[in-house]
Structures are given as structure tokens and as C-alpha cells.
């Protein structure tokens, strides 16, 4: 039985398209006077956040509340987690409280898998970002945003630019976009491409200017300095010059090409303010779409007697 959403790679093409179609129906809710649906009445969703996050937590909270679920926010700061409680004991506590789903963000790659597969609890686990590993709902909202602008993603070229090494967004996007038929090119300095990227089934490039004219989507990534323990590039200025998206580079894009960013963005580093605020930029729309996509995930996992998408119980990646 399918119960969890741990990796974008767990989703089949049918799963992914069902999620996108469901999100499309749920998106119209934002235009209604009463932004509430009864589907998850009486279900409890716990947001378990071991790492700081504003938009993802708020987005999941809004999504769960709009589906009438009860939401419990549990963050590491100011809770028993900061007193040294183990993941297992936290999980047992949540199980005892009757959580139907646990949305987990953790600094350690693989923590959601452990939570889902260790047998500590019966709740569904949704990965809201684990270390430098995966962030499947971000990939879904990115794919949803592309799908709304470009239609079918078969054969579309997506350039993912920047700190791929530390990016769970890049990995999840690469997996999901492949499933949906798009061609992904990762653009980064050699030091910021992960070891083993050959196995990702994507193209890689060190030259942003060569990739941009062919791209249908340009996704800029933040340089995650908080995860860096070494010097990956000489100076910020040099990084910006070679891998930043500015007005001059934007002029070389095709007319229909959209610019995305998972946020939070550092204006002046990977993207200039004029690009971020241009009409090609769909960065604000990504946030709106995030709520609809997360509603779709929660509805399809919890709305029926059994989930309609996601990983099969007991599978590990």
C-alpha cells in the first residue's frame, strides 16, 4: 500500500500527472469566498521541523488547514527535541497523539526514510526536505508551475543553475522532470556538482551562456553557504559574473522562457533584482502553487481509505 511521499523518484508518471491535475482543481479554491474543503476533517497533520523553514512550513500548514485537517506544529527549537530526544522517541510520541501524517523537515539526509520505514508509527510521512537529499513537494510545485506555463513537459529543456551540490531541490527536480519527459541540464562550477552526477541521467555544463538560449525554463538555486565547509569558488563576485542571472543574460532567453527560484533568493548573488522582478519571473507564483500542490499531496495520501500516490510501504531508496 502506498503511504508516504519520500522521494520524487517514487512517483510514476501516472502518479505525478494525477498530482498535477488534482493541484490544478485545488488551485481554483484560492479564488473562492470560502477557502476550505472538508476532505481531511478529523485527520491530524503534524509539521515536524528540525530545521528552520518559513515558506515550506507555512505552505504545508495552509494546505492542511484548507483541507480541514487539524495541524500541530512541532519545531526543534523550544521543544523536547532541543533537549536531546531521539527521533524514535519523538515518533512514538506523535504516534501516541494520533498523527495521521507527519510532514518532516530534517537536516540529516534520510531522516524521513527512517521515520517511514523503522516501524515506529503508522502515520504517513511526507518529506519536506532532508539535508542535501530530496525535497519532493518543491519539485512538484516547480513542475506544476512549468506545466501551467508551458503545457506538456515532454522534450522541454530545463536548466538548473547554481549550487547543485547542496541542493535537495535540484535532485528532486531532476528525478521528477525526467519522469515527466523533460530534459534537464545542470549548470554549475565543477566544485558545486555532486559526486556521482553521471548517474542522474541529466546533462551537465559549466557554461551558463551556452545553455541559456535553448532553455524553456531557467531555475536558479541559492548558494547554500550555511552548508559549506570549504571554499567552492574564489569570490562571490566571480560566482555572480559566471553563474548569476542578470539582465544581459536574460536578453538571450527565448520569448516564452520562464525564470524560477525555489527561494529564499539572494538578490545580487545568483539573480539580480531586475530579473527577479521581471515579467519572466514566476517566483511569487511558485509560492501560490506550493499550497495547491501540497493540498493535492495531503488529499491523495490521506483523503481516502488508502493513498492514491506515493511510495509503497517498506521500499527504500
Amino acid at each position: 500500500m502506498k503511504r508516504h511521499l519520500l522521494s520524487a523518484g517514487d512517483l510514476t508518471r501516472d502518479d505525478a500527472e494525477l498530482l498535477l491535475r488534482t493541484a490544478e482543481e485545488l488551485r481554483s479554491l484560492a479564488d473562492r469566498p470560502i477557502k476550505k474543503l472538508p476532505a481531511l476533517r478529523g485527520r491530524t497533520v503534524v509539521n515536524l521541523f528540525f530545521e528552520d523553514s518559513t515558506r515550506t512550513r507555512i505552505s504545508f500548514e495552509a494546505a492542511a488547514k484548507r483541507l480541514s485537517a487539524d495541524v500541530i506544529n512541532f519545531s526543534a527549537k523550544g521543544s523536547s527535541l532541543s533537549k536531546g530526544e531521539s527521533l524514535k522517541d519523538t515518533s512514538l510520541t506523535l504516534e501516541a497523539m494520533g498523527a495521521d501524517a507527519v510532514v518532516v523537515r530534517h537536516w540529516a539526509s534520510g531522516a524521513p526514510h527512517l521515520l517511514a520505514n523503522a516501524g515506529w508509527s503508522k502515520s504517513s510521512v511526507v518529506n519536506a526536505g532532508d539535508g542535501t537529499h530530496e525535497h519532493p513537494t518543491q519539485a512538484l510545485l516547480d513542475a506544476f508551475t512549468m506545466w501551467r506555463h508551458l503545457g506538456n513537459l515532454d522534450g522541454r529543456r530545463v536548466a538548473i543553475v547554481g549550487d547543485v551540490l547542496h541542493s535537495r531541490v535540484a535532485r528532486s527536480n531532476a528525478l521528477l522532470l525526467k519522469t515527466l519527459g523533460a530534459e534537464v541540464t545542470l549548470v554549475a562550477p565543477p566544485t558545486l556538482l555532486p559526486v556521482g552526477v553521471e548517474g542522474w541521467d541529466v546533462e551537465t555544463s559549466y557554461d551558463l551562456d551556452a545553455v541559456l538560449p535553448k532553455a524553456d525554463v531557467v531555475m536558479m538555486l541559492r548558494v547554500q553557504r550555511e552548508r559549506m565547509n570549504a571554499a567552492f569558488f574564489p569570490t562571490v563576485r566571480e560566482y555572480s559574473r559566471r553563474y548569476g542571472l542578470d539582465g544581459r543574460r536574460m536578453a538571450n532567453l527565448q520569448d516564452h522562457t520562464i525564470v524560477m527560484h525555489p527561494g529564499p533568493m539572494i538578490r545580487g548573488m545568483e539573480i539580480t533584482a531586475d530579473v527577479a522582478d521581471s515579467n519572466r519571473s514566476v517566483i511569487v507564483e511558485q509560492v501560490t502553487n506550493g499550497v495547491a500542490v501540497r493540498m493535492a499531496v495531503l488529499y491523495l495520501l490521506l483523503g481516502g481509505s488508502e493513498p492514491a500516490v506515493g511510495a509503497t510501504e517498506g521500499t527504500n531508496l
Binding site: T22, S28, R32, P38, A39, Y299, G304, P307
Partner: peptide
């Protein structure tokens, strides 16, 4: 008007796809 989420047997079967609501 899609009624999927308002059905009284929503919990009795696997989660069903939503259908279009256009007011």
C-alpha cells in the same frame, strides 16, 4: 460542480481524483 470531497463515502474507498469545478 465537483462533489468528490463532500461525499459521505470518501473514507470508504481510495482517494479519488478531483473533477472540474467551474462556477
Amino acid at each position: 460542480l465537483d462533489v468528490t470531497m463532500y461525499r459521505d463515502d470518501l473514507r470508504l474507498r481510495p482517494a479519488r481524483p478531483l473533477l472540474p469545478t467551474e462556477i
